[in-house]
């Protein structure tokens, strides 16, 4: 048996991180932006059936960037986690914080123990009801978790998109129409090309809805907003 050659832990982690970052940057960006009725999720996604944004539970949504098969796997596991908690205890006991922690632990473990890290970056967002604040958690490939305020961007050239949105931020959260326009402008600016509305995947967590707050906007809804 050949003797395994030595690689320093620093080098190994750095290599893995570089590998994961490269995979995530290859895709397109996804934005989560607080608007007046809740949280708006917008993604540049040419596919109308392979979603990047999805419902998890009553007040919680998920967005994934990077490798589809991997974040889809995480999405399904998250829904299972949420439904199990809600079934075992009560619907109000399902929280974005608990779910984000589980994601963080899973991604962290996979990053340090698996040969290939997961090439994903995910968002777990929760709309606040009864005067509570919204929550936006961004979880990276290595399990690091960031509690974002007002907005978050993952995937693609996320930093440029985020910079654009921060520069154009208003003190008060925008309405749905303005928020969506701003998201589209940010995505177009960074992609330096027009994005047709059928290539936008948009969903909202609207705190004014009864029961499940998640709603996907059809391309007809989006055109109507832009009209």
């Amino acid at each position: 048996m050949p003797l395994p050659y030595y690689v320093s832990p620093e080098q190994m982690m750095q290599d893995k991180a570089e590998y994961a970052k490269k995979g995530i940057a290859k895709g397109r960006s996804i934005i989560a932006l607080e608007y007046v009725d809740g949280i708006l999720l917008a993604a540049d996604n040419p596919s109308s059936s392979l979603h990047k944004v999805s419902e998890v539970y009553d007040r919680i949504a998920f967005a994934g960037a990077g490798k589809y098969s991997e974040f889809e796997h995480l999405r399904k596991a998250g829904i299972r986690h949420a439904d199990l908690t809600g079934y075992m205890y009560s619907r109000e006991d399902v929280s974005a914080r608990t779910l984000s922690n589980a994601y963080s632990q899973s991604l962290g473990t996979a990053f340090s123990t698996d040969v290939k890290p997961l090439e994903v970056e995910i968002l777990v967002v929760q709309v606040g009801a009864n005067g509570q604040a919204n929550e936006i958690f961004r979880i990276s490939f290595d399990g690091s978790i960031v509690d974002e305020k007002n907005l978050a961007v993952i995937g693609g050239r996320s930093e440029s998109v985020q910079q654009y949105l921060r520069e154009h931020a208003t003190p008060q959260p925008p309405n749905l129409k303005d928020g969506l326009r701003r998201c589209l402008a940010a995505l177009e600016q960074v992609a330096s090309q027009k994005i047709p509305s059928e290539n936008l995947e948009v969903a909202v967590l609207d705190r004014n809805r009864l029961g499940r707050k998640f709603r996907r906007l059809s391309s007809a809804d989006i055109s109507q907003l832009f009209a």
């Binding site: 796997h73 596991a77 299972r80 986690h81 589980a102 632990q105 473990t109």
Partner: peptide, 27 residues
């Protein structure tokens, strides 16, 4: 990638089957 630690795993889209297999005590 079969099993994700810290998150429940199951193949298929049925919650009933998931409970039966992984958490029979909750059925």
């Amino acid at each position: 990638m079969k099993n994700i630690s810290f998150l429940p795993y199951h193949e298929g889209s049925s919650f009933f089957d998931f409970l039966s297999e992984r958490h029979p005590e909750l059925k």
